[in-house]
Design a protein around this nucleic acid. Structure first.
Lengths: 345, 345
DNA sequence: TTGTAAGCGTTATCAC
DNA sequence: GTGATAACGCTTACAA
């Protein structure tokens, strides 16, 4: 052992002192600007070696403070335990890191106050931009931050006539296709269990549902449009309600994968089975969809692509400091036909 | 409109200037230290009002740099799209925020190099501590950071004889119980599809499997212990292998929820069904477990509690700057009996 | 080819 | 009761 201990070094200055160099030079080498400043290759090597040897890890706080850039993106998700959002989060994290950004993650628990607090926290942490799947009941806070210059992109749930850029699925068409399919299979008593009323994906899915009915001359029955949350509990509650109707629906269109799971729970309790007692189509495909009691017909969304596109768009805004004024993207959905819909023609 | 525009104010100095006060005073009021320094209540009010009015958001970067504390916890997860980890992540984020910490999240994609890069990144971001569900094949990098003073707690996958504190399920007993149950139901040809070999949860589950066989005088058959990943693909591959054996197993014990889904996929392709053609028990309960083609018997883990405990332990280490030397926690599992196991006695 | 020093926005120490 | 000022670790004019 020589005198040089391998003790961790925590600042450029310490490193510079050890090398009898200035912090400037060390900083330049470490940032790959050696060529620009024509730093001798021996100096370069010394710096690089010392940095490695003493396991120098630059302090990004200081760097960010100076540069006014954190290379960090805030991600707000209403429920990470919903695999739909977990899948999106995964692709966002991967793509962001790929582009040099870290993710600060917050789960709003579908609560608008929590979402507001998270936004404020992320702002104080000086994230370079935010990707948010909002609760969907209010947008003022987002709009305010956006207008102050914070790049934001909204995913999945969004707002009608909003300036906020968003990326989502083609909810209208996805729903329209699903209901048309049910009708083609002979169903006329089709219930729809919906999620959060004010959120646009919900609104658009319901519009698709109604349009499909109308185009097939089936009168809309308000008793068949129920629910107010994308949760399993909601599916369970409304499922029970529907099954106890005098004339229950022959088919149910569930607007989320959790809702459909709740419907299955209710059905199980009441000894109803799919598709003999009722048919079922669910928004959002999951790995288990094919292996349910009756393999489920689903409306698959491009979760991975939503994440990728969101990062691309946001990073582009950040890097080029632009605000593409109105921006929106609706990615097509795809119906995966399985056995949960019975042909009753 | 008066001259006072509501333009965003971004530093204490600006705010202080507007108020004709020093940054010191403003800082004190905003940090609730007004009483300590006996600041006049009129000044207090002025400061508070101005901060609100100009929507002042403190810069946490500067604060963190000065205080050498970021109120931030790094979270490394091998696959957030695995609902097991998503559930844990959710409880970690909630509990951390509850205690005043934000989460910087990274998905290692079950790749050890990615995990190492993430660790380094988190260190440079000066997180106050790290919660990691490691890939499980290597621990040097974690140990190194830990010994340099970074608080770390390992969850789920951990390392034998490691100094690193960890929180996980009682994998041994969970597996032992599952296999004993299969044996009690008359099974003797019991296959086990395992995950990552070197990870201790896997090792301990396999030990539980072997011990249960031994305690019941069933010889261990190496052909019945296969697989090398917690993924669905692995379950699918090994499932196919097992079903094509001359004497296939009558029961399969899958060491993760994704593995069991893969087995179901393979079974589906080969027209085998549960439990008539083979019985199945899976580690990890999920919301869909009850609604699969045959409702599945599972070994439920206390995911929520794992997250809570991890945050408690870590925050305690951070706040009190202690290193409880050897710390470990194994939370009990619970078998949820459903219909995927047939009594063949 | 390398170095000096200012400044990013905080908080803490000391002074008045 | 309030205020100057140094310091946290970094980048970057501007010097030399």
């Amino acid at each position: 052992m020589t005198g040089d201990s391998k003790k961790q070094i925590t600042s450029l200055k310490e490193l510079a002192d050890k090398l009898n160099l200035s912090v400037t030079t060390v900083s330049r080498v470490l940032n790959g600007k050696a060529a620009t400043y024509r730093i001798s290759s021996s100096t370069q090597e010394n710096v690089l070696n010392a940095a490695r040897k003493f396991n120098y890890v630059p302090n990004r706080l200081a760097r960010s403070l100076k540069l006014d850039k954190t290379e960090t993106i805030g991600l707000i998700i209403p429920d990470i335990s919903n695999p739909f959002f977990a899948d999106i989060a995964k692709s966002i994290e991967a793509e962001a890191r790929n582009k040099g950004y870290s993710i600060i993650f917050g789960d709003s628990m579908d609560n608008i106050e929590t979402e507001e607090k998270l936004l404020q926290l992320l702002q104080s942490q000086k994230v370079d931009g935010i990707i948010v799947a909002p609760v969907g009941t209010k947008q003022e806070h987002l709009l305010h931050a956006y207008n102050e210059g914070l790049p934001i992109v909204v995913i999945d749930r969004f707002f009608r006539n909003s300036e906020l850029p968003y990326i989502t699925s083609d909810n209208y068409k996805g729903a329209y296709d699903a209901v048309c399919y049910l009708i083609a299979m002979g169903h006329r008593k089709i219930a729809c269990i919906q999620g959060i009323h004010d959120s646009l994906p919900n609104i658009e899915r319901v519009e698709g549902y109604k349009k499909a009915l109308k185009d097939n001359s089936i009168p809309f029955n308000p008793l068949f449009l129920l629910g107010n949350s994308f949760s399993k509990q909601n599916g369970y509650d409304i499922g029970k309600t529907l099954f106890s109707l005098d004339t229950p629906p022959t088919a149910i269109f569930a607007l989320s994968n959790l809702i459909s799971l709740g419907v299955l729970e209710a059905a199980c309790e009441l000894n109803k089975s799919v598709p003999s007692d009722f048919s079922l189509i669910s928004f959002d495909e999951q790995p288990y969809s094919a292996y349910l009691a009756t393999s489920m017909t689903t409306i698959d969304q491009q979760k991975h692509e939503i994440g990728i596109q969101a990062v691309h768009f946001l990073v582009n805004c950040i890097d080029n400091n632009i605000k593409e004024k109105p921006f929106s993207l609706r990615l097509p959905t795809k119906m995966i036909k399985r056995n949960s819909v019975m042909n009753i023609n």
